[in-house]
Design a protein around this nucleic acid. Structure first.
Lengths: 202, 202, 202, 202
DNA sequence: TATGAATGAGTATTCATTCAT
DNA sequence: AATGAATGAATACTCATTCAT
């Protein structure tokens, strides 16, 4: 039991690494196994199929990234629940982008997997569901902000959630691909200004 | 000569289609050739290698999409040069997003190819250069807006350009993958509000 | 001991099922174990190797099928020994074919395993021995029939045994593969006529 | 064009050999290619899939075997059409069984492929169709024999066709697997007697 | 006795590329 | 300029078997 869990963690970590480097379709079982230090087809044996592995990786990465975000928020401000919702948005986005200044394989893999959902045929339900959860989560936060007075009342929560999510993902992707060419601090500051000026109650 | 040109156009169009559907790594010569109605290895013969084909497709798509945007702008407003820069930004973004309500293969392929640049190893210079051109272009427009007074003076043109580009790409990608679940009109309106409130001189 | 026996029976029954469905080379331990409701590699552990399992299955199936035939004969006619040999032949063949109107997994597996002996390399001694026992058995019955006067004297017992066995197996196989397309009752009647007209003393 | 045809013939011949030896599921592309003297995956490239190869092999073997039978008949008797139908049956069956005294790979493969249709899941339409054609062919011949007076009028053509086909296949299979143990000449003679006594007009 | 974990060999299939025409 | 044929590499997946408990 212990042994299996250990293998699984090693495989998932290796898979995230390889996906971050090579992209999903070129991430092979052989490479993942080699990097995890196991036999060549433990991945296939363990997960049954590539789809299953991918789904598991996506799940794990989302858990880890959101857990890390939550704990980072809590490390900053004592109580998330009493914080005005606008501050929650600003802090979360800032922490999110901050990760991409020096991303772990998990974080890079998250964006890479997002990019893999763009082709029309890509049926990659795990990832798309996570996106949807993110929207609805944001929409709810924005509504709460309208209640607590920190967010303007005339904002459309659903549409704002999509725009916010797209902004985060899009900017994060650019930070990855153009790491050298961008001044990350100023980008983060600009994103913060945009969010504030767009959402804050005037 | 004529015939060669004709083949090339057919192959490039077919390639964009296949890339939009399957993603770059799974777009095969055989499929492209079949869809272009040519012999199975005309693509290889014509372009020499898959990398060369992809570079050529990226080039063509960028040309076509930006040409379409320009002509759409001109169809709306007579003179781009006299328009306040903020209006140029707003109009361009609006037209851009509008395309993704019912995207052509070219437009979808553009996003798909962008997504393929996320993996660390992806050497896909053509695409990244296009991104850089887009930044510098936006930065320049913003500076012009600061000159003509339509854009607030304290905005950081470089950082704003990155955020703007990321926002466009990110939202466009979401529109593609979540076509059913989003109200595109309201998303576009929200984007417009965000840009205005963030960039307009107060 | 008891438990082992119980496992063995379950595994053998499951193996016959899987072999009947998939054929021998595609019948996997994993599938057999799953269908027997045991752990995935109990089959390997219990029988040692696939060859051993198959030999054991073949043995069991032959036992069961011939036992079922004998008991069916006895259920019909009180005393096999006093029956004219020709009647024994006719009745046995009729009962045999009757099974394949709605065959149990065992019965189907018997034919499937017979089919697996056709390739030249197939070393499947258990099955071939059973065939030989069947010949010699039939030859003996025919000789007895020549003694008791029910079977024509000029028949060649050895050759007739081969033909009879081939006829039974071949027709049974066709009944399996073409279950929908054949009128089983009329086929059985025809077989009976053939046997009678070929073997009965004129 | 010529080259392709040449490869195809070599591959099909090799495939028949390997199937005859190893059986269909264990006949691998690699082995076939090696025996045909081509690169390891010409078979896959040429036929597209194993199913396609198998179908093609089955088709070719049936053509060849039936063509050989027809030409052998014609070599014996001048005119097939004027021959009494019973004689056609007897001669065909005799020639058919005669092949299995020293079968070519094609002939052995035919039986092996028949055996591969026994498992319930085996969908091997090419083979089953050929069987059906064989029935209907035999049924027709038998009807013609009833017309020309050589075959008894009370025989059921459809059922007789099934029995005849099963007898041929079953006995041929036994001749293959028990080549050493059977006196082929006497078996053929016995089959001829059975057919005559069962079908001939009394 | 039985189970879960892991391995290595084998297999079909896909695909870019090269060769020959 | 273009096509058909052939190759070699890579890849996911299956499976019997072995190891450890």
């Amino acid at each position: 039991m212990e042994r299996r869990e250990q293998s699984e963690q090693a495989l998932l970590a290796a898979a995230a690494e390889v996906i971050a480097e090579r992209g999903m379709p070129r991430a092979s079982f052989a490479e993942i196994a080699q990097r995890a230090g196991t036999s060549r087809n433990l991945p296939a044996h363990h997960f049954g199929s590539k789809d299953a592995l991918i789904a598991r990786v996506a799940e794990r990465i989302q858990e880890r990234v959101s857990a890390a975000t939550i704990s980072a928020i809590e490390a900053r401000d004592q109580d998330v629940d009493t914080l005005p919702a606008l501050e929650v948005v600003r802090t979360t986005v800032d922490l999110y982008l901050r990760r991409f200044e020096d991303p772990t394989p998990d974080e890079r893999a998250l964006i890479v997997m997002w990019g893999a959902t763009f082709p029309a045929e890509a049926e990659f339900e795990g990832m798309l569901e996570a996106d949807r959860r993110a929207y609805t989560g944001w929409a709810e936060v924005i509504r709460r902000g309208q209640d607590d007075g920190s967010i303007r009342a005339d904002a459309d929560p659903g549409a704002c959630a999509v725009v916010l999510h797209g902004l985060m993902r899009g900017v994060a992707a650019l930070l990855l691909t153009e790491a050298d060419a961008t001044d990350m601090t100023r980008v983060r500051a600009t994103v913060d200004e945009w969010i504030t000026s767009s959402l804050a109650r005037p």
